[in-house]
Design a protein around this nucleic acid. Structure first.
Lengths: 199, 199
DNA sequence: GTCTATACTTTGATAGAC
DNA sequence: GTCTATCAAAGTATAGAC
């Protein structure tokens, strides 16, 4: 493999490829998603919308899955947490609200996540495993602090609450997509009430 | 349609198509999932495992998606709620435990659900919309009763709790698949604690 | 380094033969 | 009712132009 050769030869490895152009492609790909939603996400359709051949995309990304994961990761990191807000219910509500704003982002997330369950070896597998790990970790830590401050009930383990927060947020966004009457934000607020210490 | 002809002609009606054969195919397809998991779910692979051509499957199911939805629906209905248990945390835990027992069932569910988000017109769309609707409805009703009985806190709307229960269960099963250390059952038990009325 | 052209393979789906 | 043949689309991989 070329990468191995680089490592062996001693070249300063891992400058994936044209970083600038790669970013450019990602940005335009996100635009495609913002306009067309999750439909027509085949390599050829994306390439056509960007104005290159589908093979060109594979010059920067090893596979369609890798491209889509990069697109999602890029979109997710573009709207990071507002400063001064500790990970918890409020940040989840904030994130959910914005996810729903970008058409196709929740769908893309769900599709890639499902694909990562199917393929033990895929690129998405590592991404989502790490994502959940980091998310659970930071939320757990934040909740533990809030438990000490008396802001969150401390009769249940913070790890469980963190996993529940993420699961509820993910699941509710899907339910909301299928039936907007579900009330995404208000339901998450209710979960926030459940976290409060008993008066 | 053949079924209509039968009815008009007066033959002993309503053998829509090969109902028996259709069931047979479904049963064997589920076996394939139980053994091989969610991998190799292409029409040709399933057909090969059953011993027919892939076109034969399309004789009984209009599309691959319809077949897979039927497979999931069949598997889900096969393990219905234990009698005497009202819809709520306990039934969700019960269901989650069994889902996790059948390899590939959670993955199949997630995949079909994601696909239904992508395709506004697909067969899965109606299925999942209806499924969530029915689930939320029955759980809401059950929780309302338990609120009156003092078993569930009544300072939050039962509809929200129902949506949260389903979302948490769905989301946790996925997190558990990616990292079994998550503690599916114990985390759901914790959610049960959150539902209890403040002492 | 960047990209096009092209071909290979799998897949879902359809049409028609038996 | 089932198969064979066939198609179009898609992901992937390679060769080579610039």
């Amino acid at each position: 493999m070329g990468a191995d050769e680089d490592a062996v030869i001693g070249r300063r490895g891992s400058r994936p490829k044209g970083v600038a152009r790669r970013q450019e492609i990602l940005d335009r790909a996100i635009e495609v998603f913002r306009e067309q939603g999750a439909s027509g996400t085949s390599l050829r359709r994306i390439a056509e919308a960007i104005g290159v051949s589908h093979a060109a995309l594979l010059h920067y990304f090893d596979s369609r899955e890798q491209l889509l994961v990069a697109v999602y990761a890029h979109a997710e990191q573009n709207h990071e947490n507002p400063p001064g807000l500790r990970p918890g219910i409020d940040t989840m509500i904030h994130a959910a609200r914005r996810n729903v704003d970008i058409p196709g982002l929740v769908t893309l997330y769900s599709t890639l996540l499902a694909a990562s369950l199917e393929d033990e070896e895929g690129v998405g597998r590592d991404f989502f495993t790490a994502r959940f790990d980091v998310l659970r970790g930071s939320i757990t830590e934040s909740l533990r602090v809030q438990q000490r401050e008396g802001l969150v009930r401390d009769d249940v383990p913070a790890e469980h609450l963190a996993a529940l927060l993420i699961a509820a947020s993910d699941g509710l966004q899907i339910q909301w997509l299928l039936d907007p009457g579900v009330g995404l934000e208000s339901t998450l607020q209710t979960l926030g009430v459940l976290l409060r210490p008993p008066a």
